[in-house]
C-alpha cells in the first residue's frame, strides 16, 4: 500500500507541476491534459490496480516532459519566430508533442471509467472509441486557449492550422494505435473492466 501511495503521490506531484507550468505559460492544451492526468491519477489511486497506477505515473511523466518542451525548446518563439522552422512544420511538431501524453491518457480513461462505473469494454469498443476520445480530450484544451487569449491578448494565436493539424495528427496516430491495441486484445481474449485488463472467461 505504501508503494502504491508513493506512486500516486509522485504522479499527482508531476501532474500538478505540469498544470502550474502550463497555466503560467498559457499552454491551454497541456493545462487540460495535466488536469486529466491529475484527476485520473487520484481516481486510479482509490480504485485501480497497481499496474494502472504505474501506467498513470508514466502518463504524468510524459505530460510534464511535453509541457516543459512545449513552453521551452519547442515554443513558437524558439522555433518559428527565430526562423529555424517553418510554421507548418511547427504545427506538426506541436501536434506530436500534444498527442504523446494523450495516448496513455486515452487508454487510462477506459480503466478509470470502468473502475468507477462497472463498465466493461471489449476490443471492438476500444478500437471504435479510442480516436474519438483522444480528439475529444483535445477540445477542452482549445477552449482553454480561447479563454487564455481573452485573458492575455499578448498570447499570439497562430492560425487555424494549429488546431486542424493537431486534430488531424491525433486522429491519424490514434487510429493506428487503437487498431494495434485492439488487435492484441482480440487475440488474447482480453477485456477492460473494473479489475483492469483481464482475460474473458
Amino acid at each position: 500500500m505504501n508503494a502504491e501511495r508513493s506512486v500516486a503521490t509522485v504522479s499527482a506531484l508531476l501532474s500538478s507541476a505540469s498544470l502550474v507550468i502550463s497555466l503560467l505559460e498559457y499552454e491551454g492544451i497541456m493545462a487540460v491534459t495535466s488536469l486529466f492526468a491529475l484527476s485520473f491519477g487520484c481516481i486510479a489511486f482509490k480504485r485501480c490496480s497497481p499496474r494502472a497506477n504505474h501506467f498513470l505515473l508514466i502518463s504524468a511523466m510524459a505530460t510534464l516532459l511535453c509541457t516543459i518542451l512545449s513552453v521551452t525548446v519547442f515554443s513558437q518563439e524558439s522555433l518559428v519566430d527565430s526562423g529555424s522552422m517553418e510554421k507548418v512544420t511547427w504545427f506538426y511538431l506541436m501536434a506530436l508533442v500534444h498527442v504523446v501524453p494523450l495516448l496513455p491518457m486515452t487508454f487510462a480513461s477506459f480503466f478509470v471509467i470502468a473502475s468507477i462505473t462497472g463498465a466493461s469494454y471489449n476490443w471492438a469498443v476500444v478500437r471504435g472509441l479510442t480516436p474519438f476520445i483522444s480528439m475529444g480530450m483535445l477540445v477542452p484544451g482549445y477552449v482553454t486557449e480561447y479563454f487564455f487569449q481573452d485573458i492575455n491578448l499578448d498570447v499570439w494565436m497562430v492560425d487555424n492550422g494549429y488546431i486542424l493539424y493537431g486534430l488531424l495528427v491525433t486522429l491519424g496516430i490514434t487510429l493506428v494505435l487503437s487498431w494495434l491495441v485492439s488487435r492484441r486484445m482480440r487475440e488474447s481474449h482480453k477485456i477492460i473492466n473494473e479489475h483492469g485488463l483481464v482475460v474473458l472467461e
Binding site: 470502468a114 468507477i116 462505473t117 463498465a119 477485456i191 474473458l200
Partner: peptide, 13 residues
C-alpha cells in the same frame, strides 16, 4: 460482457 456500466459510465463516454 460489453457494457458502459452505470449511468455515470454512459454519461462519461
Amino acid at each position: 460482457h460489453v457494457t458502459f456500466g452505470s449511468r455515470g459510465g454512459m454519461a462519461a463516454m
